[in-house]
Computed example of a mutant assay.
Amino acid sequence: MLLAALGGGPAQAQTIDALRPVRDGFLAPQDSPLRRTVVSGLSDAAPTVGVDTPISASSPPRQTGGPLPGRPAASGAADTGYDSLNRTRKKPRYYPAQPRPKPPPGPGTRPSGELTGQLRPTLPPSASANKPPIPDFDTIPVMYQGASDDFLGPQADVPFVTEADGIDFEGEFGVIVDDVPMAVSPEQAAQRIRLLVQINDWSLRAVGAREVRTGFGFLQAKPSTSFAPMAVTPDEVGDAWRDGRLDMALHVHRNGERIGAASGREMAFSFPQLIAHAARTRRLTAGTIIGSGTVSNADRAAGSSCLAEVRAIEMIERGEARTPFLRFGDEVTMQACFADGRGGPFGRIAQRVVRAAGTDRPE
């Protein structure tokens, strides 16, 4: 299950794409995304990644005699789901005329299908949108459960049917957890966090407005989610990981124009609190992804991480929304950076909005 919170509104071959079902229900150990934790530099000679520095598409060389750089050795705690995923996966076996799985879509990605959904926290509805307030918004996380059967690589073109759907990006951070028992406390949930990720949770605003009114949550409004190239363990970001939040600025650009660089430190609810909320009436299996929701700060100088927030602020300040949603051909880039400006370990998302094949028609 992929769980993440509702947004208001390395090498390419190493991604965090959760658990893809294969023959016999197993992944080969070297393909397990939960092994693929990486440090910000794979060697002493590794270059520092800046906001606008492209990420190399080559994989780090394999080594013998020990774990690969950034891949933790098995801890010995084989009774946990995290270690069992790392240590007991079997290689799939194929027979003559038996079809092999199709190659993954996008650079170095494997879609997730073993997990079933995602939950994400959200900003309150803008007063300018004339929407009623969400009950208990300040005390209970607002989350949705979305599909996780298809993910996009960090440089994959992103297909959409029509611009009229209100195409928008949502810059987020996320965590991947170990097995989480039902009804855990936030303190217990904190011990289940294994990896940190950077996310673009694409959204269709016009479709979402309709789906919300049904009372059943999002489906068509939440297309396939994109991930930055790297997933890392919390210790790899040092002091930027504190209080269950990621204090890094998420630099977001549209066609080279700055949209924002908000920090994840102002999450209304910490990741341990979100995990505990999601697990209140259900257990979460190893590999579940919890998203932060769209990164947003009180200081408007930090900018925004989605166009919906940009437009809401325009409606408040100017009486109308002037910034259009995304159009075909637009490019979106995202990269998390440390407080001193250094590029973070996740790498860079750089994608282009395109019309989905077979949907050519007048707008």
Rank of each mutant, 00 (worst) to 15 (best):
Ala321Tyr: 15
Arg265Pro: 06
Gln63Ala: 00
Asp157Phe: 08
Pro272Trp: 15
Glu317His: 15
Ser270Asn: 08
Gly217Thr: 04
Arg342Phe: 03
Gly264Asp: 12
Leu2Asp: 06
Pro141Cys: 06
Phe269Lys: 05
Ala156Asn: 06
Ala312Ile: 14
Gly347Leu: 06
Phe346Trp: 14
Ala4Pro: 04
Pro324Arg: 09
Met1Thr: 07
Thr233Ser: 08
Thr214Arg: 08
Tyr82Phe: 11
Asp299Trp: 14
Cys337Ile: 07
Leu115Ser: 11
Ala5Trp: 08
Trp202Lys: 00
Gln273Cys: 00
Leu284Val: 13
Glu257Trp: 13
Gly358Trp: 07
Lys131Pro: 01
Arg36Gly: 08
Cys337Glu: 05
Tyr95Thr: 03
Glu211Asp: 04
Ala339Gly: 04
Ala278Thr: 14
Ala249Gln: 09
Ile193Lys: 11
Met143Lys: 03
Ala221Tyr: 13
Phe137Asp: 06
Phe173Arg: 05
Arg280Gly: 01
Ser112Glu: 03
Gly9Ala: 12
Tyr144Gln: 01
Met143Glu: 00
His253Asn: 07
Arg318Gly: 01
Pro54Tyr: 12
Ala190His: 09
Glu163Val: 14
Leu250Thr: 07
Ser59Trp: 04
Leu3Ser: 03
Met267Ala: 03
Thr109Val: 14
Trp202Ser: 00
Trp202Asp: 00
Val184Ile: 14
Gly319Asp: 13
Glu331Asp: 04
Leu152Ile: 03
Leu326Cys: 01
Pro181Ala: 05
Pro159Ala: 02
Ala221Pro: 04
Ala308Thr: 07
Thr109Pro: 01
Leu307Lys: 05
Gln198Arg: 05
Ala189Lys: 04
Gln12Asp: 12
Thr37Gly: 10
Pro60Ala: 11
Phe160Asn: 00
Met143Asp: 02
Thr162Ser: 05
Glu187Gln: 11
Arg62Gln: 15
Thr48Asn: 02
Ser292Pro: 08
Arg93Phe: 11
Val39Phe: 14
Glu187Tyr: 13
Ala221Phe: 04
Ala209Asn: 11
Asn130Tyr: 13
Gly303Lys: 07
Arg352Ser: 04
Arg327Ile: 00
Ser84Asp: 02
Val22Met: 06
Arg93Ser: 10
Thr333His: 08
Asp179Thr: 15
Pro96Val: 10
Ala350Lys: 10
Ile16His: 02
Leu195Tyr: 04
Arg192Lys: 10
Phe227Leu: 14
Met334Phe: 07
Val354Gln: 05
Gly293Arg: 12
His277Asn: 08
Ala249Glu: 11
Glu314Trp: 15
Pro10Gly: 15
Ile55Gln: 06
Ser270Lys: 12
Gly319Ser: 04
Leu115Glu: 05
Asp52Ser: 05
Ser128Ile: 05
Ala5Ser: 06
Gln220Phe: 14
Leu115Val: 15
Ala228Arg: 00
Val22Glu: 06
Ile275Phe: 13
Ile259Lys: 03
Ala5Gln: 01
Arg265Asp: 10
Gln220Ser: 12
Ser59Met: 11
Glu236Trp: 03
Gly244Pro: 15
Arg205Gly: 02
Arg280Pro: 01
